[in-house]
Design a protein around this nucleic acid. Structure first.
Lengths: 152, 152
DNA sequence: CTGGGACCTCAAGCGGACTTGAGGTCAAGG
DNA sequence: CCTTGACCTCAAGTCCGCTTGAGGTCCCAG
């Protein structure tokens, strides 16, 4: 049994649904911290699980780890978020999600109309207008913001 | 002036909103083909623009290039899609988009309720339930399908 | 025929988020 | 004390969709 409430990396990883290597990576990236035993082994307070939850939530909203780190750093003293922090950050995320949803809905609706019209040529199609129109529009009009494009 | 209706790579790239290098890459990946001049320079029929439009639409729906290639290969003889093909493929995509939209909406709604509740601990939060619940659920319950998770 | 822009190939690099492997150390039950 | 499994570090590798660079060739207007 572990004496106090410090967790070791394997247990944190298991409970957070991550690989231990991911935790070490996060630490290296400044997203989490750990205390070390005399021998150099990582020990984590339980609060790391909240922090990891926060990281995952942010990732799900589309933030890169860099952005997550930035978001975490707006919390004075790098503490675990309070309700107020959480509300502030989640308002930002909400906007981001709204934007992403709008993009996808527009895409879907464009797709529906394509189904209706047969849309043989795919030109002027709401899903992809890559032809001359796009050529004229610069470097290729796209319907999704960059963050959505790859991966989506 | 170009004699017949064959386009060279730069023009295709410009009109498709891609870099020439991307076209060469696509060819290497088996997504498009080209004919070559005696000297080895690529020439493309106009239909390549439709094909590229198809590729981009598929990417926007979240398909990887591999998947796009697979989708294209379901078209007998690798021909440019007919309306029927298009309808068939776009039905699949529609489902995919619906799924992605549902995920994001669920995430957003979860987020809203979190804002309402304060949700200090982030446990049981709709945005991230990574704690023991996730540990129990296998390798970390996530709210977005893999294609959405990274990038989104 | 020649100049020079557009094209060619092949290999390597990038960015993001990790994973994998080699080689070695720590810690706790028996 | 000893074993053994969990842990450590550091460097390199993976995947995806391209881009970049080096070094060289093509082709067509003048």
């Amino acid at each position: 049994m572990r004496p106090d409430d410090l967790l070791q990396i394997g247990e944190v990883a298991r409970r957070a649904g991550l690989a231990p290597s991911a935790l070490r990576y996060y630490e290296q990236q400044g997203l989490v911290t750990s205390v070390r035993t005399a021998g150099g082994v990582r020990r984590y307070p339980r609060s790391v699980l909240r922090r990891l939850a926060f990281v995952r939530a942010a990732q799900n909203v589309g933030l890169s780890l860099q952005e997550v780190r930035a978001a975490l750093s707006t919390l004075p003293d790098a503490r675990t978020p309070t309700p107020a922090d959480w509300a502030r950050l989640s308002r930002t995320w909400r906007a981001r999600l709204d934007e992403q949803i709008d993009s996808l809905v527009a895409l879907r609706d464009g797709l529906s109309s394509c189904i209706g019209c047969g849309c043989l040529s795919l030109r002027r199609c709401a899903l992809s207008n890559p032809d001359d129109a796009a050529g004229a529009a610069g470097s290729g009009a796209r319907y999704l913001p960059p963050s959505l494009r790859r991966a989506l």
